[in-house]
Design a protein around this nucleic acid. Structure first.
Length: 266
DNA sequence: AATGGGACCTGCGCGC
DNA sequence: TGCGCGCAGGTCCCAT
């Protein structure tokens, strides 16, 4: 899915476009993405509501409604939002009273949305660790201390540090010259500090470039984010490392493809 | 307690 | 051309 930078790109775009618009209709083409409440109640509660604010918590989008309720959206791997006209392939479309539509697109139907009185009490929200921006180097070091898993798996564990997924974990480790399969607890203080700094810088860089469109992800105008052009190791198996020319190697960690430079990363 | 594997889904590219 | 397989930005559940 969309990792933190892609979700933040969506949040910023929609915050300029849909605030205070009235939802006049909800078109559900695939009810699998709506997890609560039951479909009839979901539509009934949303109709006539206005979106007052759009929040983001790690990779989760939260639409705050004037009714006091929250529409909580998790895009998972392939979800994205397309603003404009009605889309045939949308799993769900929200129609506004000015006849514009917000379409929920999701090739793999793994994403989900929930309409609730609150979002903070959702168990997966409660368990979320702070984002890298909200952690200092010491807190990051404490989060790694004594962990037996690999550093790459740990970066993707949302209960340890949130917002990072498979692309930016690989990128930050490359920038920090740390092999992804190193055990988290084995990092030196200097490596820990460097990794923390690089996590923040790569996420900010990706936000500036409006995210990575390596597959289905598009921004709400349907445009690709340009960060994919700036990725240093992700999906570069066999290609020369930009620093030392050594071919990039791909391994599997916790079932996820993981690229790194066998020479630069120690 | 923490870790790894499979499940949830669809669609694409590749090799045979 | 057609088919089967592996793989894809995430997370949850379960066995160990």
């Amino acid at each position: 899915m969309p990792e933190l930078p892609e979700v933040e790109t969506i949040r910023r775009f929609l915050s300029r476009k849909i605030l205070n618009k009235k939802i006049s209709a909800i078109i559900v083409n695939d009810s699998r993405v709506i997890k609560e409440p039951a479909l009839r109640q979901f539509k009934k509660s949303l109709k006539g509501a206005r979106i007052q604010n759009i929040l983001r918590r790690a990779k989760v989008l939260v639409f705050e409604l004037d009714s006091g309720m929250y529409l909580v959206m998790h895009l998972r791997i392939a979800g994205w939002l397309l603003y404009g006209k009605k889309e045939k392939k949308a799993r769900v479309s929200f129609k506004f009273s000015d006849n514009f539509y917000l379409n929920y697109m999701d090739q793999r139907v793994l994403g989900e949305m929930r309409l609730r009185q609150d979002y903070r009490d959702l168990s997966f929200i409660k368990k979320l660790a702070p984002e890298p921006f909200a952690m200092d180097a010491q807190q990051f070091k404490d989060a790694l201390a004594g962990k037996k898993t690999t550093i790459k798996n740990l970066l993707m564990n949302q209960e340890v540090i949130s917002g990072i997924g498979n692309i930016y974990a690989q990128e930050a480790l490359f920038l920090s010259k740390i092999k992804p399969q190193r055990l988290a607890g084995s990092l030196s203080l200097a490596e820990t500090r460097l990794l923390h700094k690089n996590l923040i810088s790569v996420l900010k860089e990706a936000i500036r470039h409006k995210g990575s469109s390596v597959d289905t992800y598009r921004d709400p105008q349907g445009n690709k984010g340009t960060m994919a052009k700036h990725l240093r190791v992700y999906d570069r198996k066999g290609e020369p490392c930009y620093v030392c020319k050594e071919p990039i190697v791909k391994i599997s960690l916790a079932g996820r493809g993981t690229c790194f430079c066998p020479q630069c990363q120690k």
